[in-house]
Computed example of a mutant assay.
Amino acid sequence: MAADTQGNEDVVAALLEDHIDEIERTVRDGTRENAPDARRDELGAAYPREGDRRLPTACGSVESVRAVVRG
C-alpha cells in the first residue's frame, strides 16, 4: 500500500468503526427497550452465531470495503 493513502484509509477505518458502534448501540438499546423478553433472548442467542458465520468471509477486510466503496 502506498504511504500517501495510508492516512486516508486509517481515517475511513476509524469513521467506519465509530459508525458501526453507534448503529449497534442504537439497535441494541431500541431492542432492549421495545422487544419482549423472549424475543431478546432469541436475538441474544442468534447474534454470536451470525457473527461466527460472517467473520470467516472477511467482510471487513480492506479489499471487501474497497469493493463496496467502488460499487
Rank of each mutant, 00 (worst) to 15 (best):
E50F: 15
V62E: 05
A2P: 04
R70D: 15
L43A: 15
P48W: 06
A58R: 14
E9V: 03
M1V: 09
R32Q: 15
V69A: 06
A38D: 14
T5V: 05
R40L: 14
L43K: 01
E17Q: 14
G44D: 14
A35K: 08
M1T: 05
E9I: 03
A46R: 12
R39W: 10
P56R: 03
R53W: 04
A67L: 11
G71I: 14
E63G: 02
S61E: 00
R53P: 06
R32M: 14
G44C: 12
G7F: 00
R54V: 02
A67F: 02
R32Y: 15
N34W: 01
P48Y: 11
R25E: 07
T57G: 04
R39C: 13
E42I: 10
A14D: 04
R28I: 13
M1P: 04
R28W: 10
E22Y: 03
R39P: 12
D52S: 12
P56L: 05
Y47C: 11
A14P: 03
V68C: 07
D4P: 08
A67T: 12
V11E: 01
G30T: 04
Y47S: 13
A67K: 12
E9F: 00
S64E: 03
L55V: 09
D4G: 10
I23L: 06
R54Y: 00
A58K: 14
A3T: 00
R32V: 15
T57N: 08
V27F: 03
E50G: 12
A38L: 11
D10R: 06
C59D: 02
T5M: 07
D21M: 08
L43S: 10
I20C: 05
R54C: 08
N8P: 07
I23K: 06
Q6F: 02
L15W: 00
I23S: 02
L43Q: 09
A2W: 07
L43H: 04
T5Q: 06
P36S: 08
R25V: 11
G44K: 12
V68E: 07
A35F: 12
D21H: 10
I20T: 10
N8F: 02
V11A: 05
A13S: 10
E50V: 15
T26S: 09
S61L: 00
E24I: 10
D37G: 14
A46H: 08
T31F: 14
D29L: 15
